[in-house]
């Protein structure tokens, strides 16, 4: 049966300040969605809240996978249920080798009941799989021995996110601007890689400002965020339109919400001056 990720009336605050103001979204395993919206509209906030970042406080609403409420779960439990976030800004972990990190991650996600110190996926099998995935993404296999994101270029970090996605094979993958900061060759490699990974087993939510990723991974649905809400839903043509014309039209169609956006901006400006 296809799994369902259901986000219902989600309200999220950061440092007591409401950022998401009632987000509704349903994503089924196997689907591809585009999530768009101007900077500051709350896309990354939604992604972090889905994963359970401790600074993003859920003040109302629900996040469910197949009826299981995620809100009280730690991020690792969510990962073990099949949720994955490719970070907009991947974190560096000095001294931890990519291969060691991923071997632990893969062991936990494939064996969700695994406790720390219990058996890991067999080395030989793991190495073989890792090598194949790295080659498919055009990565030097030497990266497996490097420390996680330590000294990596922006593009290398993004590729590392996709490698992790490939190894963890989540049910629901959220890609937060995975294509930004990449040169066009790298965007192509990542887009093709993602297209190959996507399939009936995986849903992909692509947060992007660019077209390329969506060319290779055509979304069934496009959602537009503005000031902490999803204000429009459409198909691939909506993504195309937004890319061509920007968000002026969206703001015109939703003046009240767009006004909230400007109020926030003014507030910020005032705070900055003060």
């Amino acid at each position: 049966m296809n799994s369902l990720l259901k986000i219902d009336n989600l309200h999220v605050s950061v440092n007591g300040k409401p950022i998401l103001k009632g987000v509704n979204l349903e994503v089924r395993q196997g689907e591809t969605h585009a999530l768009m919206g101007p900077n500051g509209s709350g896309k990354s906030t939604l992604a972090y809240a889905l994963m359970g970042h401790p600074r993003y406080e859920i003040t109302d609403g629900r996040i469910e996978i197949d009826g299981v409420d995620l809100v009280a779960l730690e991020p690792d439990a969510r990962a073990r249920l099949g949720l994955f976030l490719a970070f907009q800004y991947p974190v560096t972990i000095p001294g931890v080798k990519v291969a060691d990190f991923l071997r632990h991650a893969v062991s936990n996600v494939r064996n969700p009941d695994r406790k720390e110190g219990e058996g890991l996926i067999p080395m030989r099998e793991f190495r073989k799989e890792l090598k194949a995935r790295m080659e498919a993404l055009g990565m030097d296999v030497e990266f497996a021995r490097r420390y996680l994101n330590d000294g990596f270029s922006g593009g290398e970090k993004k590729r590392m996110e996709i490698l992790q996605l490939a190894m963890l094979r989540p049910k629901f993958a959220i890609l937060d601007e995975t294509d930004s900061g990449l040169d066009s060759d790298a965007v192509r490699v990542v887009s093709e890689g993602l297209a190959r990974l996507a399939g009936p087993e995986m849903a992909v939510v692509i947060i992007t400002h660019h077209e390329r990723l969506l060319e290779f991974n055509r979304p069934q649905s496009t959602h537009v965020m503005l000031a902490g809400r999803i204000v429009e839903n459409g198909d691939a043509t909506l993504a195309h339109e937004l890319h061509d014309q920007g968000y002026a039209g969206v703001r015109t169609r939703h003046p009240a919400i767009a006004a909230e956006e400007t109020v926030e901006k003014t507030e910020e400006a005032l705070v900055a001056k003060a």
Partner: peptide, 22 residues
């Protein structure tokens, strides 16, 4: 760092331990 590790399925302690070893 802890959050990132946990997003990849590592428990809080496992994440902490990995960061210590690193």
């Amino acid at each position: 760092q802890i959050f990132y590790c946990m997003c990849r399925g590592l428990s809080r302690y496992e994440a902490m331990h990995m960061i210590v070893e690193g």
